[in-house]
């Protein structure tokens, strides 16, 4: 099904949510490890967490380039990596943001505004001959949106890369812990906190 897999027809992706110590060079360590071991990355997003000592790196990895198990084991050898959650796409919520500047002549503008409404995107900036719009959604929704805009002429676009969290389990009493059970978490042994 086209659009269901934003990372190419043949590829298999998986999301690693990697909690790291917030220290200089940590992103370089992670990306250097992927480069050195020949693991492909589709996207990578990094930002501080609710705790100032830690950052979270969300990496969408290509399972064609290496087994997931190898990736997590090697990643976990980095001293700065505290916890890795493998987020199975079936058991996680995934979001990505895109900003697009699209050509919009006077007569096309209303059509683009209509598309924006259908996709629940937002208009960020209005120019004489162009509009800048943004959409956050699943990668496939973003793909579909881009396809719809394409005929008008894309001037520029920027995607953030995927971020994800475990899906909450509705059956059990709501807790992130039980939801995460469908995903695999590797954390430092003996870390009793």
């Amino acid at each position: 099904m086209s659009g269901s897999n934003p990372y190419g027809q043949d590829s298999q992706h998986h999301v690693l949510s990697v909690l790291v110590q917030n220290r200089p060079g940590v992103l370089a360590r992670v990306s250097a490890l992927f480069a050195r071991r020949g693991y492909n990355i589709f996207s990578l997003a990094v930002a501080p967490t609710e705790h100032p000592d830690y950052s979270r790196i969300t990496i969408v990895v290509d399972l064609q380039s290496a087994p997931l198990e190898q990736m997590t084991k090697q990643l976990f050898k980095l001293i700065d990596v505290v916890r890795i959650s493998e987020l199975d796409p079936r058991f996680s919520v995934e979001r990505e943001l895109i900003m697009v500047t699209v050509k919009a002549t006077a007569e096309q503008r209303s059509q683009i505004v209509e598309l924006t409404n259908i996709f629940e995107a937002r208009i960020l900036s209005v120019g004489v001959e162009a509009l800048t719009v943004s959409l956050d959604g699943s990668p496939s929704a973003i793909d579909d949106f881009m396809k719809a805009l394409h005929p008008y002429g894309i001037v520029e676009s920027q995607r953030t890369g995927l971020v994800a969290l475990p899906k909450l389990d509705r059956a059990a009493p709501s807790s992130a812990q039980s939801a995460a059970s469908s995903n695999t978490t590797h954390s430092s042994q003996g870390k009793a906190r």
């Binding site: 110590q21 505290v82 003996g190």
Partner: peptide, 8 residues
């Protein structure tokens, strides 16, 4: 100081 390092 090394929460990510727990060799078992």
């Amino acid at each position: 100081s090394l929460p990510g390092y727990r060799p078992n």
